[in-house]
Design a protein around this nucleic acid. Sequence first.
DNA 1: TGACTTTGTGCCGACGCTAAACAAAATACG
DNA 2: CGTATTTTGTTTAGCGTCGGCACAAAGTCA
Lengths: 399, 399
Amino acid sequence: MERGRGALGPALALVHTGRAPTRAVLTAELGVTRATAGAVAAELEALGLIQVDPHPIAAAGSQGRPSHGLSIAPHGPVVLAAQIHADGFRAALVGLGGRMVATAPGCMTVPADPARIIDAVVEAGAELLRATRRRCLGAGLAVPSAVAEPDGTALNPLHLSWPTGAPVAELFSEALAKSGVLGPGGTPVTGVAGNDVNLAALAEHRHGAGRGARHLLCVATGHRGVGGALVVDGRVHSGSSGLALEVGHLTVNPAGMPCHCGSRGCLDVETDPLAFLTAAGREPGPAVSLLQQSRDLLRSEYADPTVREAAELVVDRLGLGLAGLVNILNPDRIVLGGLHRELLEADPERLRAVVADRSLWGRSGSVPILSGTLDHNSLIGAAEAAWQPVLDDPLAALG
Amino acid sequence: MERGRGALGPALALVHTGRAPTRAVLTAELGVTRATAGAVAAELEALGLIQVDPHPIAAAGSQGRPSHGLSIAPHGPVVLAAQIHADGFRAALVGLGGRMVATAPGCMTVPADPARIIDAVVEAGAELLRATRRRCLGAGLAVPSAVAEPDGTALNPLHLSWPTGAPVAELFSEALAKSGVLGPGGTPVTGVAGNDVNLAALAEHRHGAGRGARHLLCVATGHRGVGGALVVDGRVHSGSSGLALEVGHLTVNPAGMPCHCGSRGCLDVETDPLAFLTAAGREPGPAVSLLQQSRDLLRSEYADPTVREAAELVVDRLGLGLAGLVNILNPDRIVLGGLHRELLEADPERLRAVVADRSLWGRSGSVPILSGTLDHNSLIGAAEAAWQPVLDDPLAALG
DNA sequence: TGACTTTGTGCCGACGCTAAACAAAATACG
DNA sequence: CGTATTTTGTTTAGCGTCGGCACAAAGTCA
């Protein structure tokens, strides 16, 4: 009777990621008949998730009846996305398609009690929901720490001075309930928490520089240490318990600086912002974040040989680490974030050459290395994680 | 009308891996009704793949009507499995359930022309097929080299003195056609080729020490160099082009021996049989393989402090490498093969302690490290790869 | 022996899709 | 400018697959 139930999720995912601009394309991408695709589109429209343009699209040069355009419903439901980082937090409402509907930055020295800042960020999000009167279907939180699955505890929130094992997912859900963020069934929205780089990778894969990659490797450094993430066939590869891609302790300089892990010359201590500032002979100041200081130095004083050589040193070390990861993971694309992105942009060829030279199969087919293209990609990624149940089964998620 | 078509593949996989000993268990595992499970079992029996015991199984202690046992059809179809290694080759016929039906070892110095040995190994397999008159549904070949996907070329057949890029999958299929190995449609069987450690990992996951693991990491060393493989949710994680898990060039000894990759102290040159023999002060002889020499030394002279210390040195280096892999891949089980397996069995606690100590989350939950349990696991793995189309869709593969 | 528990089977209906015919909306071409 | 062509959307019929249910079968327990 009701047609197009099984394909509902895949169809929404296609529109969500912009791979189904029209119903005709949707039909082809789903591999179903026009009848089914039409029913699917109608159902998604009835659910208030997408919009089928009433007037057909002016087809460019092709003959035949033009197809109706598909787009995300402009006033459809949203998810609450949140990010906690070294300098504070940010809350936002994000619709399908990765579009930020409303945002509220919150500057705040992160307290040692994770519950306090999570309460604050959720309250900021709840305020946005009250102001915009949007329906909320989920919530996602990005934290700068490994997050163990399936319990959702933060294992190494080093620069947040949180206790190890803080139950961030649970705290997030409790805060959502306390703030009265209700989902479709009238029940409180449950929140998911994830590592910020994992979520950034997910966002870049869906809406950014990682679109279309089958095995996307992301590496980024923001404040201290280096984070990695792998997205395989559209899903974050988080290992058996969420702790995969802890790439910071690959050896990239055997004679290098000692690391708290017990080894020397780890990627963490050789390529993060502090390492760059130190290599350039600069004393890090307390005013702005280490990333900002590094970025400023790189952009304004790259002509200075000391700065340039420091950058090249860090690029060489990063290249070694990336080559090691390429050997183990064999990605078909690499996207860099944070300071690593800046370093790539300062001298793209050097990094690509090092990676190609030091990866085993680099010569037979080198891996494209790109910059992340999304602003707030961890935040968008948190939204993606929150959308996931809806993308998997829209009917079940909407009630 | 015909019930249980969609579940045919999953059901066969359950019987194949021994997870569905009875129809009742099959019903539960598939999550379908008894009616559907019954139809599925009947269909698989009609296809000649499995056997439904006519008389029910004596249920141990439980009441209720006893269920009928399910088992692999004893005279059902087979696949042709082949393995090429440093000392020669081996061909076999393997039925479902990983049971070797017939085998033919072939000792032969591996010629520089891959076509010649592939022809020989296929001819040995074809002879087995003629002798046993079994129906052949596929063919798989394990080679000690990375195999690029999807074209099936061998990229680093170092100790085979083959040219880089040898099209082994193509040569294999051509040899099968030439030898008259015909599949169900009367057309020649097409062969799949894979890296031996990847295939061994697959075999261990389905029938050996890796059963039940969701993220299984296998590391093994046979002759020269070290191979790795990751099986995620029952599938080999081979990266975007089949070249993943090239683990041999992780740095495990910064001051170590130079490696052809340009670095020093790689896992390859620090933990393979040659490294062990060298560390023990033994000159490798030409008579038997390096693995055999190492194994003999380890088993017969472990009381000798020189040998013991060499073993401990290699174990420590291996532990560092495994810890690095644990940090990146977060497996829930590790299975070792070749000399690494022997080293684990010589002193299990030492290796486990090193890995737990040097992996970031080792203390919160250490990864079980086990020995491979299958004889000829690469060969069985080659069979698994050959069975895959049948396991995915029995009707299509047999029709 | 009879109650109970668990497994296997036959029948019906619901669900979700394909197929096919038809209608609609554009371009191409004489 | 009208007709053919192409491509898209819709309607209807039908079919394949599975769940639900009732009943039968085969054992254990008291």
